[in-house]
Amino acid sequence: MQKSLHIDPSKCTSCLQCEMACSFENYGVFNNSLSRIKVFDFHHTGAKVPYTCTQCDEAWCMHACPVEAIKLDKTNGAKVVFEDVCVGCKVCTIACPFGTVNYVAETGKVQKCDLCGGNPACAEACPTGAITYVDANWTGLDRMRQWADKLGNQPA
């Protein structure tokens, strides 16, 4: 079964545990500026929204890469940057409509979410369930349950 990251912004408190877990998993440091998931805190509405790569099937970044440095991990559907191949041309950062692949000046390569090889650290770290790693075919299950509850599970 393929899984995907599922984000429920209404549960996010902007604690940034996910960003720290991401940088620690990938670089061994707590450094939010290196995180591949970002939490956006919209002050005027109070909304807090974690955002990261959705692993598009027809991934713009993968198709745009002139050296084939971004490849599909068939075990989990992640589009993975191979740093030893990446030449740092940044074309993928232009191609991605969502901004979720970014250049890292310190390494001269790009980086994006690779689902941590199938065990995403952000989802593990999230204390509120705002970020979960669930059946890719059923990311709507929770919302369906809520509406099913409204429709048919109220006391008569």
Binding site: T13, C15, G46
Partner: peptide, 8 residues
């Protein structure tokens, strides 16, 4: 509106 955590 909702609750917010500080860093970490």
């Amino acid at each position: 509106v909702n609750n917010q955590g500080c860093f970490g």
